[in-house]
Lab assay of single mutants.
Amino acid sequence: TETRTFTDEREARRFEQEARDNGKDVQVRESNGKFEVRVK
């Protein structure tokens, strides 16, 4: 599991989409204006 934290939602979404395109299981959590993207 890899976790990346972004402050920019667009960057978080781009990373999320890229991971999904690669067939990964992705979860995005938002807290305090930060976006935590977990990739399995």
Rank of each mutant, 00 (worst) to 15 (best):
R20D: 02
D21I: 10
E18Y: 08
A12H: 00
E11S: 07
G23S: 03
V28G: 02
N22T: 09
N22Q: 15
Q27T: 13
A12I: 02
V37F: 00
S31Y: 12
R10W: 15
T7F: 12
K24N: 10
D25M: 11
K34F: 14
R4M: 11
R4E: 07
V39D: 03
V37L: 01
K24M: 14
E9N: 02
F35P: 02
R20H: 06
N22L: 14
V28N: 01
V28L: 12
F6M: 04
E30N: 08
R20N: 04
E30T: 09
R29Y: 13
T5E: 13
T5I: 15
K24G: 07
D8R: 00
R13L: 09
R38V: 15
D25W: 12
V28I: 12
R10F: 14
T7C: 15
R20L: 10
D25I: 13
E18K: 08
Q27E: 15
R10N: 14
G23N: 07
T3V: 14
G33T: 00
V37N: 01
N22D: 10
Q17T: 07
R10L: 14
A12M: 07
R13A: 08
E36T: 04
E2S: 10
E9G: 04
V39I: 11
T3K: 09
E16T: 03
F35I: 11
A12W: 00
D25G: 05
Q27L: 11
G33P: 03
R13Q: 09
R38F: 11
G23I: 02
K24E: 06
T1D: 14
R38E: 14
S31L: 14
T5R: 09
T3I: 14
K34D: 05
E18A: 10
S31I: 15
E11R: 00
D8P: 00
R38P: 02
F15K: 03
V26M: 02
E36W: 03
G23Q: 04
D25S: 12
R29D: 08
E9T: 01
G23Y: 06
K24W: 15
E2H: 11
D21H: 10
N22P: 02
E11H: 03
F6H: 04
R13P: 03
T3Q: 06
G23R: 04
T5A: 09
R29Q: 10
E36A: 02
E9Q: 05
R20A: 05
V39L: 06
E16W: 07
T5V: 15
R14S: 09
T1I: 13
F6A: 05
G33W: 00
Q17I: 06
R20P: 01
V37P: 01
F15A: 07
T5W: 15
N32R: 03
R4D: 06
R38Q: 13
R38H: 12
E9M: 06
